[in-house]
Design a protein around this nucleic acid. Structure first.
Lengths: 223, 223
DNA sequence: ACTCATCAGGTTGTCTGAGGAGTTCGCCCA
DNA sequence: TGGGCGAACTCCTCAGACAACCTGATGAGT
């Protein structure tokens, strides 16, 4: 194919060459690339062109350049879209990951929660109870409650992880609750209330335990 | 704030400005940006700097440039990918998330590990000990060991999460071990051996506990 | 023997000027 | 009216110069 319809500019071609070399393992993770001038001469392109190629890979998150130090490999491959991973994964797998995150977050929340956090959590707990009979509404309120707990842990990474789980878990829960409604809404609500109490009491162990047991029960419903 | 320590080069700052302008809707989807010279003068930067900023956004998939035609907006919002989130997050935050995942994974591994898993874990444990004095080498061997444990949990989501942590954690650990080497490599190795024993014995609680205490100690070194 | 400032070399960052290559659009002429 | 043509605009590439910065070595001082 004599250079397909879309002719790649030199910079883009150069970026492809670099990425290929990284993928092949020639430049492993954390490795420093040869200098700009060296590399440009080696590839037969101008320094500006090479710099633009590097920039493109920086934008992809594959490279990172530090002035005076060099250009380093920060990822061996372009990170696969997280959504596709979760979509492919089983609900049980996702729930197990959710258990890991929420149990840890519950303990951290018990340790770090501010009065404002506590107010938000209690408001969400009340909102959880008051919702109508629509399944979606109930699930959304439940998710919102769990999120307030994780926010109280004051850890951005945990929050981001939870957020990325939401779409997948939400759909699964809606489907399940349609087929098999909760046996005892009162017990379900009590479990959540226990968690709130543990966080309010700054009881790390109890918070983690309540969170874990509640979600494990949920997981059993899917298994 | 930690981010002020990391000085952004002009090109990166320019990329941020452009992205902000796109996000705000000033340049809607499909819109053509002003020319290089115009835009560079308008932003008060050199042409090549602006070009590098554009390249970075091309790498992110937000912009697309066609020779002779112009630069066009191809996406309004960049899918906040995990790499950038983790890069921005503090090491402690990432480690707390890692604790959550690994403690859970350790318990699951104790429950589900196959003989093959156990062999892989033990082989990685031996590899961890035998490495030379190079810091990178040691960190890589350590990461490889922890990964085998998570693989033994037989949960793809957990593995993917761990993998996405690796680049960030790896660099932080290398940097730290350079300035503050391990006080007692023997104790460190013993902690890992304990974890392996617990997994071999199918002791869920002990596996989770060893994993948690080990990583918590690591977290303390960064805090 | 140890600590610290200083220096030199190499690296990325930025700007400018020049010319090449491609696209677009309107003008002119048949 | 239709088609060819070219001017004007755009991005693409290169080269050179200088600034900002990091790293490792060197040497003076303690």
């Amino acid at each position: 194919m004599a250079s397909s319809v879309q002719r790649h500019p030199l910079a883009a071609q150069t970026a492809d060459v670099l990425l290929e070399r990284i993928r092949s393992g020639e430049w492993p993770l954390g490795h420093r690339l040869p200098g700009e001038t060296t590399l440009a001469a080696w590839l037969g392109v101008g320094r500006s062109t090479l710099r633009e190629a590097v920039r493109e890979l920086v934008g992809k998150g594959v490279l990172d350049s530090r002035q005076g130090a060099g250009v380093f490999v920060t990822a061996v491959d372009v990170t696969e879209d997280w959504d596709t991973i979760l979509r492919r994964a089983s609900v049980v797998s996702v729930l197990e990951a959710r258990i890991a995150i929420e149990a840890e977050a519950a303990a951290l929340a018990a340790e770090r929660r501010t009065p404002a956090d506590l107010r938000a959590i209690r408001r969400a707990l009340a909102g959880r109870e008051g919702t109508g009979r629509a399944v979606e509404e109930h699930v959304d309120a439940d998710m919102a409650f769990h999120r307030t707990v994780i926010v109280a842990a004051h850890n951005d990474v945990l929050v981001e992880m939870f957020d990325s789980f939401v779409p997948r878990v939400r759909r699964a829960m809606v489907d399940m609750l349609r087929i098999r409604p909760l046996a005892s809404p009162e017990a379900d609500h009590a479990a959540h209330a226990d968690l709130v109490t543990a966080i309010a009491d700054r009881d790390l162990r109890a918070a983690a335990e309540f969170s874990r047991s509640h979600l494990t029960a949920l997981k059993r419903a899917f298994a």
